[in-house]
Design a protein around this nucleic acid. Structure first.
Lengths: 206, 206
DNA sequence: GACAAAACAGTACACCGTACTGTGTTGTTG
DNA sequence: CAACAACACAGTACGGTGTACTGTTTTGTC
């Protein structure tokens, strides 16, 4: 039951999603139950189920709504501004702890195939992977990333790093994501430089 | 209720933990309830609760039992063999999907302070961090890691990468962790080399 | 103005983790 | 060796959860 047909239903749908995000932001993931969301949205439990069929579906759509990856990817496909844009797109996440919790919890709970949100995350990974491979290839062509590493692998590494970082962030909010991207940039560009030097003058290495 | 005093109790405790791990390995994290574990271990639900007081505590101890980080860290503190030992210690994880699921789910669910397992993971992160900083410092001293990056940051990066990788592995088991470590090694050692070259001959850079 | 679909409310149910109560068992201590 | 307290359970009860089932009202369409 993805979309509603009537106008009134579509409005209530949005209200329910708002209530869900508000609930999770104020009282955390555990406080989000169908009943609390229903109460917040001003309707009965069955009303919520009517629109979303299952809790996982509700949470999935709530997450998809604030999904930063699909939100603004302007500049993320440009090799020159990639790391800068990556930094910018991540600073907003720190503030929204509830969103991170929603993402991590739902991602972990949907690991087993067959669940409602599993396909969503699989598709999300796939899409992010395609864009990731594209940008890493561009970085490699521009000489800002070592070519000895498979672009697909680099994409997996970056996404895993970001995923794990969000998990870690829940335990230690003092961690600065910007610094992490800084370090990553040093590693990637540094390794690219070393690879270039090695190709030009093989004897330079001890 | 961490430890049991009587001999019989200690034995049953182990049986319960075995039943928990067996349950999670065969039927996944969702199938693990106090009742199913009790049935598997051959006692009542209250019997399980008597030994572990809460479900989270049970799961935490079950996880701690198979915690690979604390298991064998031989060679993990040696700069020369670090990446090799890291690779070795990770290949065993792939086989045990249930363990990964347990780790990821419990880690995500214990994000909020006050829960039973929260302190466990906080301590685990702290311990791994201390060892991480130590080894990264050694790698930096050995010239196999760029010194421009804070060792603490490198430790967070590696752990986050591994955490996120385990999550990702649940969605895509075909991912080869060994290759990821290979890539990481290329990045770290390459960047270290570039940093060295730049320090020796600053003019060599375009 | 009929009529079907949508948008709910109300109720019921199976399952969950956990708190409470009772009873046999075990180990220790005088 | 008897007393006794802690342990090791079983049985029961409870509040809360997601979800399926059954109406009833509202909405849009022909």
């Amino acid at each position: 039951m993805p979309k509603s047909k009537y106008a009134k239903g579509a409005v209530k749908r949005e209200e329910i999603l708002d209530a869900t995000l508000k609930m999770i932001a104020q009282h955390g993931y555990n406080a989000v139950t169908i009943r609390t969301v229903a109460e917040q949205a001003g309707l009965s439990k069955t009303g919520v189920v009517h629109h979303f069929a299952s809790k996982q579906e509700l949470l999935t759509e709530a997450l998809a709504r604030r999904d930063e990856w699909g939100a603004d990817e302007t500049g993320l496909d440009e090799p020159a501004t990639f790391f800068d844009r990556l930094r910018e797109s991540l600073v907003g996440d720190v503030a929204a702890r509830g969103l991170i919790e929603l993402y991590v919890r739902l991602l972990a709970e949907s690991a087993q195939p067959g669940t409602a949100a599993h396909d969503f995350f699989t598709l999300r990974y796939k899409g992010a992977d395609e864009r990731g491979v594209a940008i890493w290839r561009q970085l490699q062509d521009a000489g800002r990333c070592p070519q000895g590493i498979d672009a697909h692998l680099l994409s997996v590494i970056l996404m895993s790093l970001l995923d794990g970082l969000q998990m870690r962030l829940l335990y230690d909010p003092s961690i600065d994501i910007t610094s992490v991207i800084d370090a990553l940039q040093i590693l990637v560009e540094g390794a690219a430089e070393a690879e270039f030097v090695r190709d030009v003058s093989p004897a330079s290495r001890a």
